[in-house]
């Protein structure tokens, strides 16, 4: 238990440092882009006859941050507000907090990403086990080739193919949006059905572009576990087939936790492409729009949220790993 707390504390410190680094990088990178909407607004107010002080205050009230001052001042101001979980106000949708803007998108993205992860993980691990056990037959080869192929297809290509097949050639799914605007929102049949049918294709795009790497990793992991001595030992000890399969599966799943955490980052990155392709109003779309409008606050908030998601996923994967692998959990306490 003490061990776990120490581990967790270490994770938190590292997470904070990482968030600070990302916050700093994005702050300056964003401001290196040509075009500065806040400065433009400030200039406009000054030209309209406002005194520089009044214009400054008005802009600050509108956007929530300093329009002028040195880069350093702005940076310190930004960090200070960040410490208070104040992400500033959106410059494209006046009066809306950037965090609210991002969170509205995030809930849709998280839903898609989770669905994509679950489908791809289930599909990838099961097919990976089959590919490993039948590795010397045609079935195994076919699965491996399929896995490599899907692994190699970029997410946006996958999205376009799905759109072509399921909305044009065989129109069974809606093309865009997250829900049919004609149905009553709420927890009712048609609304849920509409949510699911709108989410199906984007989630499938995630799943299809991800399951290949799970399949390939699981396959090689199972093959390597099958060669382990304890598998033969379990057979020679007369353990039932089910019991042996359980031994193999649990040992083979371990390496997958590592790529699991990496995958989550990849999926949030993919949100930009997939949501754009399906016009799904998630974080990816929010990000694209905020870049278009030079909406500094929203961009910053989005990047920070993605960073936080990846960090949290890594921490969770590490803690799960600790729970599942006694060699990590009890490494230091060998029996004398």
């Amino acid at each position: 238990m003490r061990n776990l707390l120490v581990r967790l504390a270490g994770h938190l410190v590292r997470a904070l440092v990482m968030i600070w680094v990302v916050a700093t990088f994005t702050f300056f990178l964003i401001r290196l882009m040509p075009g500065d909407p806040v400065a433009a607004q400030y200039e406009k107010l000054v030209q309209q006859g406002m005194s520089p002080d009044a214009a400054r205050n008005a802009t600050r009230l509108t956007y929530g941050f300093l329009p002028t001052g040195s880069g350093w001042d702005q940076y310190v101001h930004y960090l200070w507000r960040l410490l208070h979980f104040d992400f500033g106000r959106s410059t494209q949708t006046l009066g809306v907090n950037a965090s609210a803007e991002v969170l509205t998108g995030a809930k849709w993205t998280i839903g898609l990403v989770l669905a994509g992860i679950l489908i791809s993980f289930a599909l990838g691990t099961v097919l990976g086990v089959i590919a490993a056990i039948r590795r010397s037959s045609g079935v195994g080869d076919a699965l491996t080739i399929t896995g490599s192929l899907f692994h190699a297809i970029p997410q946006f290509v996958m999205a376009l193919v799905l759109i072509t097949v399921f909305t044009v050639i065989w129109p069974v799914f809606p093309t865009d949006g997250n829900v049919d605007i004609l149905v009553d929102p709420g927890f009712n049949g048609p609304y849920v059905a509409s949510l699911v049918s709108h989410a199906s294709l984007p989630a499938l795009a995630y799943a299809l572009s991800m399951f290949g790497s799970y399949l390939l990793t699981m396959r090689s992991s199972v093959i390597s576990v099958l060669g382990d001595d304890f598998v033969l030992a379990a057979e020679l000890r007369g353990l039932t087939r089910t019991m042996r399969l359980r031994y193999i599966a649990r040992n083979a799943l371990l390496p997958l936790f590592t790529i699991f955490a990496l995958t989550i980052g990849f999926m949030f990155g993919g949100a930009v492409f997939i949501e754009k392709a399906f016009n799904y109003p998630g974080m990816g779309i929010t990000l694209i729009n905020s870049i278009g409008h030079r909406d500094y606050s929203t961009m910053n908030a989005t990047f920070l949220l993605i960073t936080a998601a990846v960090i949290v996923a890594n921490i969770v994967a590490d803690l799960l790993y600790t729970a599942i692998d006694p060699r990590v959990r009890r490494g230091g306490e060998a029996v004398a």
Partner: peptide
Amino acid sequence: LQEARGGEIGYVFQAAQNSLNPLKT
């Protein structure tokens, strides 16, 4: 056969080999 293994006939592995599931006590 499965019942005979470990039941009537016991098998002891090479010492160098890890004959136990690493994830279980």
